[in-house]
Structure formats: C-alpha cells, structure tokens
C-alpha cells in the first residue's frame, strides 16, 4: 500500500498515513474550498487499506493522531466519517486508538473529541499539546 502524504496548506491539514509504521497523522487547519474533494480520497485510501489488511489477515494496532487546530463545520462531518471508518478496522479486530490533541483551555475542541468518540465508538486519548 502506498503512503498517503499531503502537505499542509493554510486551509487544509497535513496528512501523513504511513502503513509501514501504522502511525497516521492529520494536523493543521481544515477549511478546504471543496470538502468532498479533499476528504473523499482520504476515506477511499482507508477503505483500500482496510481491504488490504483484511486480505493479508494482519491485526497490528493503528494509531491515528489528530491535531486539528481549526476546522469548519463541513470538515467536522468528514472528520467524524474518518473516525467511523476507523471503527470498521476495530470491527475486524484491528485495534485503533485516536490521539485527539488540543491546546490547553480549548474546551470546545475537547468536547468535540468526546462527541466524536461517542459517535464513532473508537477509543480516543485526549492530549494537551504546546
């Protein structure tokens, strides 16, 4: 499986999905002009990766680090979809943890993480950064 690497821009996050080390990262701001165009390929990549792992019978744990500084409401829907997609991995016994990073006293971001954890049913770690 090819790595998925997207550089950050002022309005889209850095995306670094490296199957070799099983640590995936999404970091930065998420306000793309076209949210479907940006997140569609990422969700597709995760589908393909899940199919590959399932075919190979691999069950190594995956860590997804999310440090999204700002995101707009339409990105929120796609970020939730990514978390739900990670639950598909959990469903076939591939352990997944999501590190939800936020800066101290950003209660909104922490609450958003807690809601996404509840809606996606994937375990989140809450990490204060900076």
């Amino acid at each position: 499986m090819e790595n998925l690497i997207l550089d950050a821009t002022p309005n889209t996050p850095k995306v670094l999905f490296n199957p070799a080390d099983r640590v995936f990262e999404i970091a930065g701001e998420s306000r793309p002009e076209n949210v479907k165009d940006f997140y569609g390929p990422i969700l597709k990549w995760l589908d393909d990766y899940l199919a590959e792992l399932t075919a190979q019978g691999k069950k190594d744990a995956i860590l997804l680090k999310m440090y999204i500084e700002y995101f707009n409401s339409s990105s929120a829907k796609y970020i939730l979809n990514i978390a739900k997609k990670m639950h598909d991995f959990v469903s076939v016994d591939i352990p997944v943890t999501i590190d939800w990073c936020y800066i101290e006293d950003d209660e909104d971001m922490k609450e958003t993480g807690e809601e996404m954890e509840r809606m996606s049913k994937v375990p989140f770690n809450y990490l204060v950064v900076e």
Partner: peptide, 25 residues
C-alpha cells in the same frame, strides 16, 4: 447538541459544500 448530532450523522453535504451544520455550530 441533539440537532447537531442528527445533522452531522445524517445530513448531506450540499453542492455548495455546506452540511447545514454551520448555524447550529
């Protein structure tokens, strides 16, 4: 919060990219 969750789980992204979530958010 309930309205937000119902839109984020069931709403469709319109052609304009809006999920109808903005004003609730």
């Amino acid at each position: 919060q309930n309205l937000y969750e119902s839109i984020i789980n069931n709403g469709h992204i319109s052609d304009k990219g809006g999920a109808g979530l903005g004003i609730v958010d």
